[in-house]
Each structure stands twice: as structure tokens, then as C-alpha cells.
């Protein structure tokens, strides 16, 4: 600060996430990343299942006890939704990769279809296949 130069106008020099109003497509982008990360951790559950079956009855019973408990079922339902949401989101990415649906209104339709589709599919699968 020399005091002689004209004051620099206070303009934003980079986009700050905080000043954007959240939009559906923005939230969906974050969700694709979050579900991808959840699935990364979720591979441990899948491999645990395989190892339990390979290891024998006792290990398999333990697996069923852990994932038949309420917290276990919550994790399984969460992973169901995560995989369906991420898979549908992945198809959306592939549609963009061939140059389609980048613009209004299709990008909004696809974002909604992704969210509504993953929620209804997860609920349907559990209602139909969970041994109530």
C-alpha cells in the first residue's frame, strides 16, 4: 500500500462456491461424488459377504447378524440407494460424453429423473425383495 495508486476495485477474482444459489444440477454433481465415495467404502461390505461365504457357516452367520441388525440394514439400504443413484448418474455422464443433454431443458429433466429414479427404484427393490 503506497497510498498513491488508485484503489483496486474489489471484484471477485475467482468463483466462490458460497455465493452461488444451489441448483439441482449442482447438488446432483456433489451427490455423484458422495455416492461414489460411499460405494468405495461399500466394497468392504461386498467383499466381507464373499469372504464370509468362503470362510464357512460361522462367518456367514456373523455377517447375517451384523447386517440383519437395524444399523446394518440402514447401511444396506444406504448402499442400495447409493449404487442406484450413482449408476443412473453414471448413465447421465455417458449421455453427456456423447454430446447430448447439456442444455436446458434436458439437463434438468435428466437430473430429476436421476433423483426420482434412484429413490423409487431403491424403495421398490426393498419393498419387493426384503423378507418382511
Amino acid at each position: 500500500m503506497t497510498g498513491t495508486a488508485a484503489p483496486t476495485p474489489r471484484i471477485p477474482i475467482a468463483p466462490h462456491m458460497q455465493v452461488y444459489r444451489p441448483t439441482l444440477t449442482m447438488v446432483m454433481s456433489i451427490m455423484h461424488r458422495l455416492t461414489g465415495t460411499a460405494l468405495y467404502a461399500g466394497t468392504v461390505v461386498f467383499v466381507w459377504w464373499l469372504v464370509a461365504v468362503a470362510a464357512g457357516r460361522v462367518a456367514y452367520e456373523t455377517f447375517l447378524d451384523v447386517f440383519g441388525s437395524v444399523p446394518g440394514l440402514v447401511v444396506l439400504f444406504g448402499l442400495t440407494w447409493a449404487v442406484l443413484h450413482h449408476a443412473l448418474g453414471g448413465i447421465r455422464h455417458l449421455i453427456w460424453d456423447v454430446g447430448r443433454a447439456h442444455t436446458y431443458p434436458w439437463r434438468e429433466y435428466l437430473a430429476r429423473a436421476n433423483l426420482i429414479g434412484s429413490l423409487t427404484l431403491s424403495a421398490t427393490l426393498w419393498v419387493v425383495f426384503y423378507p418382511w
Binding site: T43, V44, F46, V47, L50, V51, V53, A54
Partner: peptide, 13 residues
Amino acid sequence: VIGVVGAVAIIKI
């Protein structure tokens, strides 16, 4: 590691 452990389990079964 996740891939190899899972594959060993599948092959063992």
C-alpha cells in the same frame, strides 16, 4: 487389495 481378496473368496467358493 479389495479386488484380490474378493477374487480369492469367489474362486475358493
